[in-house]
Amino acid sequence: MLKLSEITKTYKVGTFGGKSLYAVRKVSFDIKDGEVISLIGESGSGKSTIGRMILKLTSITSGSIEFNGQDISTIKKADLKDYYSHVQGVFQDPFSSCNPIFKADRIFEIMHEEFFPSMPREEWDEKLVEALHCVGLNPEHVQNKFPHQLSGGQLQRFLIARALLLDLKFLVADEIISMLDASTRIDVLNLLADLKSHGLSILFITHDLSLGYYISERAVILYKGTVVEMGETDKIYHTPLHPYTQMLMASVPHLDHKWEQKTTDLGGKVEDITEGCVYFSRCPLEGKGEQCRADIPPLVEVEPGHQVACCCFQK
């Protein structure tokens, strides 16, 4: 359905834009029909940038993204609406996603205007009510309200309903539950899983490992714009191979048992590396050497459905 091939995003920095900074570096993976992939990374890992590139909100420096075989960078302005009728996004802050001076329903009004200008009002209203029911909202409770009169969870469902009005095939869900309260976030997560079972593909961007585990079949671990490990969720979580992934897994606070080892890595200042393994300066492995500093390790398949980018698995 969606295929990312070596996509890269660089930003020019420095006084005259002489240096480039990699936000995303040669990231490749694909998402199949009806699949949920978790894109997991800490702040600054470039995970949101990838989502924005898929949504064509940020330009791609190099590499390509294909949607059902078509390179999305070749889509003309006139055909953009067609692309957006299949691919949509929901973002982290539901309140910021609504124009604060209008009522929340206006986001639906825009959809009507832009995508279904000829649909009569009655028919549209029916479609809308159906979409709201689908995300578990009672239209009477949520229509004709201002964003701040709704809860974060309600608003986030609202925004999912907005996407469902279209012939949706792919959804980019960027940290969509990190701002919600514990008692409501799981319901939004369940809703996504439910949509998935109806054939929707989802890129679930998160920093919260337990959420990623709950919902996705496959996970991609991102560190400083580079994929360090990816594969089936179970394998990544239970037998992490990359030292970064191992550190992440060891840092997850579990409800039922305490952290085993003490932190040695305090996450001090990390210099920007343009060459070699991105994790070099923090890597605790004894086997790390000059090769790690010089070459960027490629992703290699260590077992079926489990790839890792670390010099230690380069045989």
């Binding site: 924005r52 949504l55 909100l57 953009l80 609406k81 957006y84 949509q88 996004g89 973002f91 996603s97 986001i107 825009i110 959809m111 832009e114 995508f115 925004l159 907005r162």
Partner: peptide, 8 residues
């Protein structure tokens, strides 16, 4: 962003 995604 959402407005852009709506093709405005």
């Amino acid at each position: 962003d959402l407005a852009k995604l709506s093709g405005m």
